[in-house]
């Protein structure tokens, strides 16, 4: 959308793209679909435990990306994209905290089982 900005000039003389009604509507519809898929799977017990967790996490991650691209315009702006770089750094810390906590506390429970 909003392809009026196709010169690749990094001199800051141009503003970002702001998306269009169309891109917001597309993002909204995809988000609704990605919300309904895990709801249907969970409420109807359609799959096994592992498959359900996989569906929930994949649709959530996809919806997060849709929000970033269609609503938060992560791809816009001039190069280098400091906001995207900052976000990648934040997600790295997020994954370290969450996965590290699960891993370590899981091991603790194994160690304490006597």
């Amino acid at each position: 959308m909003a392809d009026h900005n196709n010169t690749h000039n990094s001199h800051g003389g141009e503003r970002h793209e702001h998306g269009s009604v169309k891109s917001y509507v597309i993002g909204y519809i995809i988000s609704i679909i990605l919300t309904i898929i895990p709801l249907v799977v969970v409420m109807n017990d359609m799959m096994g435990r592992t498959a359900t967790i996989a569906v929930i996490m994949v649709t959530a991650t996809l919806q997060f990306l849709v929000q970033l691209v269609f609503f938060m315009h992560i791809r816009d702006g001039e190069q280098p994209r400091w906001n995207a770089i900052t976000l990648v750094f934040g997600i790295l810390i997020l994954l370290t905290i969450v996965i590290g906590s699960i891993w370590i506390m899981g091991n603790n429970q194994i160690g304490m089982r006597m």
Binding site: T86, L87, F89, G90, I91, I93, L94, I97, V98, G100, S101, I102, M105
Partner: peptide
């Protein structure tokens, strides 16, 4: 700021999961 908020929620999510 949003990234610091991501880290705040990361700790709370990790706490809940654990």
């Amino acid at each position: 700021f949003l990234v610091t908020d991501v880290i705040l929620f990361a700790t709370l999510f990790a706490t809940f999961i654990v």
